[in-house]
């Protein structure tokens, strides 16, 4: 699951000509550590929903990789 999330995040970074990240950490902040803008986050929700059928922003904002993983594990 973490790997799939890594692929999605790297796809978004690559489209903006940003270098890919090798690994995700639970405490990584989506904005400050992974450099995602709100437009990127919107894209992330769509791609995660395509993959896992879960809307990660359904009940409010998530800020870290760990929070996303927790939603996906439910």
């Amino acid at each position: 699951m973490k790997n799939k999330l890594l692929v999605i995040i790297n796809d978004i970074r690559r489209a903006k000509n940003q270098p890919v990240v090798d690994d995700l950490h639970e405490n990584d902040n989506l904005r400050s550590d992974l450099g995602l803008t709100s437009f990127d986050l919107a894209e992330l929700t769509v791609r995660v929903e395509d993959e896992f059928d879960i809307d990660i922003f359904e009940d409010g904002l998530v800020n870290t990789v760990g929070e996303i993983l927790k939603k996906l594990e439910k």
Binding site: S38, F39, L41, A42, T45, V46, F57, E58
Partner: peptide, 10 residues
């Protein structure tokens, strides 16, 4: 545009 919960539309 396609409706999106984060930014209105994607």
């Amino acid at each position: 545009g396609k409706a999106n919960s984060v930014i209105g539309n994607i």
